[in-house]
């Protein structure tokens, strides 16, 4: 699963999570196989990023490279109770 920018979307990618608007209403459900039209709708609705299946976009050489390490370092002193680790992993998933 990867969270990618709208302009990186390509038809045939599969949504790994539902896309919702700011009020929480579902625009496209999880599992949708994207078409050109879907991509245009998401763009129109002001959506910036979505979750897709797999790791289709390489982050090498971008400002996202090393994000996981930075987040690990930030959490270095936070101890390792299970909930803290869950929060850390979710932030990694969302930001990397």
């Amino acid at each position: 699963m990867q969270r990618i920018f709208i302009n990186e979307l390509k038809p045939s990618m599969v949504l790994a999570d539902a896309v919702k608007d700011s009020s929480g209403a579902v625009i496209l459900p999880k599992g949708t196989t994207l078409t050109e039209k879907h991509c245009a709708i998401l763009d129109e609705r002001g959506i910036k990023k979505v979750f897709v299946e797999g790791l289709p976009i390489s982050r090498e050489g971008t400002s996202f490279e090393g994000m996981d390490k930075k987040i690990d370092e930030r959490f270095f002193a936070a101890g390792n109770n299970p909930l803290t680790l869950k929060i850390k992993d979710r932030i990694k998933e969302l930001l990397s």
């Binding site: 930075k70 987040i71 002193a77 936070a78 109770n81 909930l83 803290t84 929060i87 932030i91 930001l95």
Partner: peptide, 25 residues
């Protein structure tokens, strides 16, 4: 505070996410 720090808005001098108070949550 923990979420905001985890995202990276740390407030410069304070780099590290503080420990979670599980009981409070």
């Amino acid at each position: 505070d923990i979420i905001v720090k985890g995202i990276g808005v740390t407030g410069s001098s304070d780099l590290y996410v503080p420990a979670l108070d599980e009981k409070a949550l």
